[in-house]
Amino acid sequence: MVMETETRPVGLPRLNEPAPDFEAVTTQGTLTLADFHGRWLILFSHPADFTPVCTTEFMAFAEIYPDLQARGVDLLGLSIDSVFSHIAWVRNIEEKTGVHIPFPIIADLNKEVASAYGMLMPGESKTETSRCVFFIDPKGTLRAMIYYPLSLGRNMAEILRVIDALQTADAHGVATPANWTPGAKVIVPAPNTQELAEERVKAGYECVDWYLCKKDI
């Protein structure tokens, strides 16, 4: 027996594929994905305006905004609220805490962007977006995703670490090991032929074995 359901199917974007295009009303005018071309973009969703965890997150995102700008990264928020709600909320945050929210926020009332990016998790909430983060590179390719539940505020140090790791990997053709932070050794990609494996162990890298070699950059 086939069960009918009214739940909208959840589609997730895929890594290393073009990020879903959008044109959306934001607190800083109508923006498209192409408007961010040539710079990194962190697109993130929050469940709702005027809620406690989201407010702490917005203050935290505002705090790292200069660090992101220094890395060539733009920031774009999203929730299923109206632009008037967004404006009232960011003004309230500034009035009550003194923290200015410098980045735009998408008013995704029709859930178009949220659906395209798989931000809706019906098992968690049918009316709110989960705490999602999408790292989109200057060519518009989706490079990393983080999904957090409604109850868990995000870690800004991890968001900066992901950007640093992606930019380091692109700049040097390397990978980054567990718990990597800027300044730590990086991983030399594993050789894929026997000849390269033999050359690798003689190349002067710090190697545990031929497939696990690190170097400074």
């Binding site: 800083q28 005018g29 109508t30 923006l31 408007d35 040539g38 710079r39 733009d74």
Partner: peptide, 12 residues
């Protein structure tokens, strides 16, 4: 201004 703001503004 951020580049994205300029691109958006140009359309308007």
């Amino acid at each position: 201004l951020p580049l994205f703001r300029v691109r958006s503004a140009m359309r308007e």
